[in-house]
């Protein structure tokens, strides 16, 4: 394969990982917990997108043969799927996180309850839509050509689109976090929720906001991956979710630029694994993760970990 295609593959994969990891990061920074239902919300986003563009449910689920009366263009279906995923993420916050937080329970417990929420979602999808794989047809992109000529090489339009949308979202998120009042408020909550509350910031509201945005990002990246690779079944978000954990730690837990850098590194590294070694590709992210934990546990851009007395 040509270098430019490899590079683009790596970059777009990395951008998806970064989006995914940012969803983890947002929730982690305000709650100090990894939200294990994130992968399921990602999967859900892909299915929402598929249904919204007018895709038909397969024969094996309860919804067999269902088709929405309207077939939206992809440009509209994707943000809508993102919004629907955000609502689900808010619901998860309400059911799996808030009761534990109000009681001041160990954060380990939220890890488990969020996982339970994920298990429910994934199996609900399987029940309704069956275990088969779905593909979002390229035709959804309307008049866009399937491939573009770029610097003398053929590249898939989908990859370019994936990269462009991801980068746009990453930029928007950074601008929001650094440049707006509510973004700063979120940072304050991540620093210390109680103090932030005392200073007049609605900590609970910011936590909900973090969940909403993280769900939106997950839904959108699910839809994008569904378009570029296909939806391999209800469990397809899990492997992305696990790798995004690697991305997260590589960049530094709780660091937004870190999540982007980590996504880029792991995406590129995976893309450049030679085809004859493709079976080992999955180990790349975890290998990196393991190395960084041993050498620099706070991650590339994270703050050093101190011991609190």
């Amino acid at each position: 394969m040509e270098l430019i295609q490899l590079l683009l593959n790596g970059l777009s994969l990395g951008a998806v990982y970064a989006l995914f990891a940012l969803g983890y990061t947002l929730v982690f920074s305000v709650l100090g917990v990894i939200n294990f239902s994130h992968g399921a919300v990602f999967t859900l986003g892909a299915y929402f997108t598929y249904l919204l563009i007018g895709g038909q449910a397969g024969a094996n689920g309860l919804l067999a043969g269902l088709q929405l009366p309207v077939a939206l263009p992809f440009a509209l279906a994707l943000p809508l799927a993102g919004l629907a995923s955000a609502l689900v993420a808010l619901l998860i916050e309400r059911v799996a996180f808030r009761p534990l937080r109000q009681r001041g329970s160990d954060s380990l417990l939220a890890l488990i309850s969020s996982l339970g929420a994920g298990v429910i979602l994934v199996n609900l999808i399987q029940l309704l839509m069956g275990a088969e794989s779905y593909a979002i047809p390229i035709g959804t992109l309307g008049s866009l050509p399937a491939a573009l000529r770029f610097a003398g090489a053929q590249v898939r339009t989908v990859q370019v689109l994936l990269l462009a949308i991801s980068v746009l979202l990453l930029l928007l998120l950074s601008v929001w976090l650094e440049g707006t009042r509510s973004g700063k408020a979120l940072q304050a909550v991540s620093e210390d929720p109680v103090t932030a509350q005392l200073l007049g910031i609605d900590s609970d509201g910011m936590i909900r906001l973090a969940f909403g945005i993280s769900g939106f990002l997950a839904g959108v990246s699910g839809g994008l991956v569904g378009l570029s690779v296909s939806i391999a079944g209800p469990y397809f978000g899990i492997s992305y979710g696990l790798k995004a954990l690697g991305v997260l730690v590589l960049g530094g837990l709780g660091s937004v630029p870190g999540a982007m850098l980590g996504g880029l590194i792991i995406g590129l590294a995976e893309a450049f694994v030679p085809a004859e070694w493709s079976g080992w590709k999955d180990a790349v992210a975890y290998g990196f993760l393991f190395l960084i934990l041993v050498l620099r546990p706070q991650g590339l851009l994270g703050r050093p970990l101190g011991t609190k007395v």
Binding site: V95, A96, P99, L100, S105, L109, A110, I112, S113, L115, G116, A117, G118, V119, I120, L121, N123, L124, L127
Partner: peptide, 12 residues
């Protein structure tokens, strides 16, 4: 799904 519910509600 019920298994997931048990895991979700157990800690709560």
């Amino acid at each position: 799904i019920v298994f997931g519910l048990v895991i979700l509600l157990g800690p709560v």
